[in-house]
Amino acid sequence: MLRFILRRILQAIPTLFGISFLSFAIMTAAPGGPTAAMKLDPHLTVKQREAAADRLGVNDPFFVQYIRWLIGDDWKTYETVDNDGNVVREKGENKGILRGDFGRSFTYKMPVVDLIKEKLQPTAELGLLSLLVGFGLGVPIGILSALNQGGKFDNLTRVVAVVFNALPAFYMGLLLILVFGSYLELLPMGNRCPISVSGECSLTDRAERLILPVFTIATGFIAVLSRYARAATLDVLNQDYVRTARAKGLHSRQITFRHVGRNMLIPIVTLLGPSIPGILGGAVVVERIFSWQGLGRLALEAVTTQDYPVVMAFVMFGGVSTVIGYLLSDIMYALVDPRISLDAGAGRS
């Protein structure tokens, strides 16, 4: 298992390099650039705008920018001329991504790592809980639907799944806010903690503010997973070994949990991999509606302002989480299906 994981990590390295190179090329080729918006700020002089572009290094050729992002420039000395005409020598400050330095945000003038750290917790809270609720509800609903194929529950869940799938997250979120926040006044309409000068925020406060956004994201998961789980369960129910188990007179609960449950999970775990990076995409809209300061909104803002270091950090974050997501899928495959071995050379039996 360990060798498999190591091999996959090594395989991921060139993939991540490829992702970074292509993304950097596309990003820098996009029209405008990080200082474009400054062009319409009357407070800034032409000289200031040029100085800002020089300071950010966005006037440098693509390869220079890419290499600097990759390996930094703390080994290089820059020469500039100050207002009095003196030559000033300054060493570069970037260590580069290979040494864990994602640079400084052009917009916030602070290290990208600090920015991401600040925003990671809200998004992780929201995303992981949504995933948990999505799998926790979607899979059992799918199994129950399959066990009651053609029944009222099956028909009801089919309709609900279609509705959940069809409603965009922003609409679902607004609907929930209007019903549960505005009309029924049962739940708060947003933010992670109560609005107060004192800043008190109990676990209950946090929990009740999670309900609506988590449910908004989870509806998509529930809709998809319930249909997948239903199809997978029906497939397993028609297998010979289930018929044999029934013929042997095993109790239906035993059949469901021991034989059907475990085997229907095999196709479901394949969905886990792409779901992890997908959390970030889903969070963009939901974080906005529910006033959460998370990674999704930061990513969107970075793209619109062309904040290169932040955009690239998200690209790499997306790349790494995709690799980890698929790796987890493979590991879970082996856990739920004893026929699959991850040891080198063993392959599938």
Partner: peptide
Amino acid sequence: VDVPDTTVAVERLLS
């Protein structure tokens, strides 16, 4: 307080 969605902002004012 951060309330980026304008529809939600009005609802929160009314409430």
